[in-house]
Design a protein around this nucleic acid. Structure first.
Length: 735
DNA sequence: GCGTGTGGGGTTTTT
DNA sequence: CCCCACACGC
């Protein structure tokens, strides 16, 4: 295996070790192989010891794979080589040094996930009396995250959005949120990055420790880094400048999360002497697939010129199929899979179903389940996001980090033990007045007696004693035994056992699964402890556990498919509003990101690619008629094999006819009345039509949905975003 | 403090 | 269509 052949460009990258290096690695160009070989080369040539190499990846799975491959190549132990994600790296640095920030953080800090952050923001929003129409907790969360990713503090953020009337309030919520997290000795995902930067600034010795250590730095999936991550890389590589970044701007799909595509587009501006190597040979896909993907991506303007090619041969055309209902779409896919597996062309594990949104997986799931065809789904409801698991980990967090009141409040009444909002409120008042944590305040029996009745008092006492007992047990129980003890002592096991419902049973078995996860964690990690286990839970996603060898179909979102490949790919729901997603309709930039996402999805395929859609689809309980995805139109006809039975040609005009037909079918008599009404004042409106609205200006109709009362148009307005308007009232002028 | 019913609102993607 | 938040009644 060590004598793997590399092409000329790859060899160049493998041997160019010193100075900044940008590898523009297109889809399927052997990026990981090259990176692995380069790291092996660094070690084997004696330029650095394993512990002096840093490799940052995007997912834990990628990190694990890379480490494995490096180990196979150099046949040396790599335990002390840092091959991890940005977040894991930052967490590791902070566990060691965060106390130097002198802001009250301890190394037992909790990591808040989205739900934890939202809970905090809900309280803040209501304490500020913010109108939730303008300030939903989600919106606040997203603004704060944007601010943090751009390295703006509340003050700077306020200035940056001074045109927005909400600036003042959002900045204030941001500030309060920061204070609350700090008080709770907690960091959210964005904080992990930011606090490391703060640490580097305030403690130059910490920075130089890592700067000296890491002689060679690698960043995979560089197109998905945000400003904070970029700054971390810059800081770590400032002296030696041995930084090698690998990425593909055409696969930048995390802009919504703060990833800045300019990091890759402008790398050469920041590192003037950067060597740039383009890997343009694709080893994965046949040319029919690659050409179709190229045809789509070339419609983007925000990219570097790059032409991917392959010598895998033409292969077969990309298959297109248009169903009339989502069930029929699922049926078609099922039949195709059945065909190819019965013929023995492919096994189930060779096949993946990709979709834009998790909601689309459901129909496929139904179909596979009915057929008894095994499948595995990734994404969606994550294991650690399940209520009972979050509750249990909240218990564990309370125990590790007594300052974590978010966690404490979450579980103080779980299972129900009669400690309601009023009691918690009173307890909080006591805590605040005496500058105590909630846990400590529970011991202030006299003060509690002043404001509460004996019933509430004894309930608090009971809870407090239980937590104290757990604290004690932690010191002598193993990780697994301790977690089991928490489950039993806190009462969750009894609570669910008593219910005797299927749902409760599921929750119990999930709790059992958590125990198994802990057991496995102990086996795999030398430094396993309650703290490291919790950290692992916070930073791991379920795509990380994707298994390869099992015989099942894989179902995942296009996002989580990044970095994977399958012989057969089905990309479903190729419809305007779904893929590209509605939310992207308003802006050209977001549309380009959708296109990149589509490119990512298509380039996962090695031999066979299917693109499917349905003219009608049940959404929100009503039937919707979405036009065909523009991405399908961007593929030249000769590259597409349209297997849709009736209408042979795929173009917009055919589509419109079909859509109207279904429309009428829905309720013919009513439709006639409506039509006559409508034609009275307006010309008929179809999908894709440009319209003008008095208030919102010019826009494009992206979908039409029918209800008993008439049709509702979903229209993307320039600069105004996407609106839903009732055809009966909205004064729409056809342009 | 808690259970029930209703009404309204909501589905992008994830470390 | 489903899941939540909220209000009400016990």
């Amino acid at each position: 295996m060590s004598k793997i052949k590399h092409n000329k460009k790859q060899l160049e990258a493998i041997h160019h070790l010193d100075g900044p290096l940008l590898i523009l690695a297109g889809a399927g160009s052997g990026k990981t192989r090259t990176l692995t070989a380069r790291i092996a080369n660094i070690i084997e040539s004696g330029k650095a010891k394993p512990f002096e190499v840093l490799a940052i990846t995007f997912t834990n799975r990628a990190a694990r794979e890379m480490r494995q491959r490096i180990e196979e190549t150099i046949k040396t132990d790599t335990t002390d080589m840092w091959v991890l994600t940005f977040h894991a790296m930052c967490s590791r640095i902070l566990r060691q040094h965060i106390e130097k920030l002198e802001r009250g953080y301890t190394k037992w800090f909790s990591i808040y996930d989205d739900a934890d952050s939202l809970a905090v923001l809900k309280v803040i929003a209501s304490s500020l009396n913010l109108n939730t129409n303008y300030y939903s907790p989600q919106a606040l969360r997203s603004h704060i995250s944007t601010a943090k990713n751009a390295l703006l503090d509340p003050e700077a953020f306020k200035l940056s959005m001074k045109d927005d009337f909400r600036a003042e309030n959002i900045a204030q919520a941001y500030k309060m949120y920061e204070d609350e997290l700090q008080k709770n000795n907690s960091l959210d995902f964005d904080d992990l990055l930011i606090k490391v930067l703060e640490l580097f600034v305030s403690c130059p010795d910490v920075l130089s420790k890592y700067e000296n250590r890491f002689k060679y730095i690698h960043v995979d999936e560089y197109q998905d880094t945000n400003v904070a991550q970029y700054e971390i890389i810059k800081a770590l590589s400032a002296t030696r400048r041995n930084v090698c970044v690998v990425g593909d701007e055409d696969q930048s799909i995390y802009g919504w999360r703060g990833a800045d595509i300019n990091n890759i587009l402008d790398f050469e501006k920041d590192f003037l002497d950067a060597k740039v190597i383009k890997l343009e040979q694709n080893y994965r896909s046949t040319s029919h697939i690659l050409d179709a993907a190229n045809a789509i991506i070339k419609n983007n303007t925000d990219r570097k010129e790059k032409t991917m090619w392959t010598n895998r041969g033409k292969g077969i055309q990309t298959v297109f199929y248009k169903a009339t209902t989502e069930r029929e779409e699922a049926e078609y896919i099922y039949t195709e899979i059945k065909k190819m597996t019965v013929l023995g062309d492919y096994n189930l594990q060779d096949i993946a179903i990709l979709y834009r949104t998790n909601a689309l997986s459901r129909i496929m799931e139904d179909r596979f389940m009915r057929a008894g065809m095994s499948y595995a789904m990734y994404g969606g409801q994550k294991f650690y996001d399940r209520k009972e698991i979050k509750d249990l980990t909240a218990y564990l967090r309370c125990i590790v980090n007594p300052a974590d009141e978010g966690a404490l409040i979450r579980i103080i009444n779980i299972p129900k033990r009669g400690i309601g909002a009023t009691t918690v409120g009173r307890l909080r008042t006591i805590a605040q007045a005496n500058n105590l944590t909630l846990r400590k305040a529970m011991h202030e029996e006299e003060k509690i007696a002043d404001v509460m009745g004996s019933a509430a008092r004894s309930k608090i006492l009971g809870f407090s004693n239980m937590m104290d007992k757990l604290d004690e047990k932690r010191s002598f129980l193993s990780l697994v035994d301790f977690i089991e003890e928490v489950m039993n002592l806190c009462g969750m096991v009894d609570f669910y056992k008593a219910q005797k419902t299927e749902e409760a049973e599921g929750r119990l078995s999930n709790m059992g699964e958590l125990l198994s996860a802990a057991r496995e964690f102990v086996i795999e990690n030398e430094d396993a402890s309650l703290e490291t286990f919790l950290e692992n839970i916070a930073l791991v996603s379920d795509i990380d556990s994707l298994k390869e060898s099992r015989d099942h179909i894989t179902m995942l979102t296009a996002h989580s498919a990044k970095g994977l490949e399958f012989p057969v790919i089905f990309t479903i729901g190729m419809e305007e509003g779904l893929f590209p997603h509605q939310r992207a309709m308003g802006s050209e930039e977001e549309m380009e990101e959708e296109r990149r996402l589509c490119y990512v999805a298509m380039t996962r395929a090695m031999d066979r690619l299917y693109l499917t859609c349905s003219t009608g689809r049940l959404m929100f309980g009503t039937r919707r008629y979405n036009p065909l995805s523009r991405f399908i139109d961007e593929i030249p006809e000769e590259l597409l094999n349209n297997t849709t039975p009736k209408p042979k040609v795929v173009d917009k005009s055919t589509f419109r006819k079909t859509a109207t037909f279904n429309f009428t079918e829905f309720s013919q008599s009513r439709m006639k009345i409506k039509k006559s009404k409508k034609t009275k004042d307006k010309k008929e409106l179809g999908m894709g039509d440009k319209v003008e609205h008095k208030k919102f200006g010019k826009g494009t109709i992206i979908s039409i949905s029918s209800s008993a009362t008439g049709s509702v148009y979903t229209i993307a307005f320039k600069g105004e975003g996407v609106k839903e308007l009732d055809g009966r009232y909205a004064n729409l002028k056809k342009l």
